[in-house]
Computed example of a mutant assay.
Amino acid sequence: MSYETTPTTTDVRWPGATSELDPAPDHGETSYTGHGRLAGKRALITGGDSGIGRAVAIAYAREGAHVVIGHLPEEREDAASTLELVRAEGVTGLGVEVDVRTPAANAALVQQAVAEVGGIDILVANAAYQMAQPGGLEDYSPEQVQRVYETNVFGTLWLVQAARPHLEAGASIIVTTSIQAYSPSEALLDYASTKAALNNLVVNLAGDLGPDGIRVNAVAPGPIWTPLIPATMPEDKVKSFGQDTPLGRMGQPVELAGAYVFLASDDASYVSGTVIGVTGGKPVF
Rank of each mutant, 00 (worst) to 15 (best):
V91K: 05
V110M: 02
I229T: 11
K237S: 13
E75D: 13
G207E: 12
L123A: 07
H27K: 03
V110R: 01
A113D: 12
T33I: 15
T92M: 05
R37K: 15
L72P: 08
L198Y: 02
R42T: 11
Y182V: 13
P211A: 09
Y182D: 13
G170I: 03
S272I: 01
S31W: 10
A192N: 05
S269V: 08
K282N: 13
T8F: 15
L137M: 14
L201C: 09
V160I: 14
G251Q: 07
G64C: 02
E77Q: 13
L159V: 00
T33L: 12
L188A: 07
V114D: 11
N204Y: 13
T176C: 07
S19G: 12
L83S: 06
V145R: 10
H66N: 10
A24I: 13
P246C: 13
D190F: 09
R54S: 04
P134G: 00
Q161C: 04
I69K: 00
V67H: 01
V175S: 05
E4M: 12
I276H: 00
A206R: 01
T177M: 12
P134M: 10
I276W: 01
P223Q: 04
R101L: 10
A61W: 01
L123C: 06
D121A: 09
M250N: 11
E138A: 11
S193R: 06
D190K: 08
E116Y: 15
D244Y: 11
D49A: 15
P223C: 04
L21I: 01
M233V: 10
G258D: 11
S240V: 15
V271M: 04
I174Y: 04
R42Y: 14
V67G: 00
S172A: 14
I276R: 01
V110Q: 02
A108K: 12
F154Q: 15
Y270A: 00
A79E: 03
A17V: 04
V56F: 03
P165I: 06
D121H: 14
P253D: 13
A115S: 15
T5K: 15
R13T: 13
K239Q: 12
A206Q: 05
R164V: 13
L44I: 06
A187K: 15
V96A: 02
V284W: 00
V100W: 03
V216R: 04
G258N: 14
V238W: 08
S81P: 14
G47Q: 05
A127I: 08
E235M: 10
L189G: 11
L188M: 08
T156G: 10
I58S: 09
D49G: 12
T18V: 03
P23K: 03
P23M: 12
T46E: 05
W158D: 09
T18I: 08
E168H: 14
I52L: 09
E84R: 06
S172E: 07
G258E: 13
Q133E: 14
Y260H: 07
G51M: 02
V91A: 05
A206H: 03
D11V: 05
V68H: 03
S269D: 14
T92L: 10
P165E: 03
G136T: 11
D78F: 02
L159N: 01
G70S: 00
G119A: 13
E186N: 10
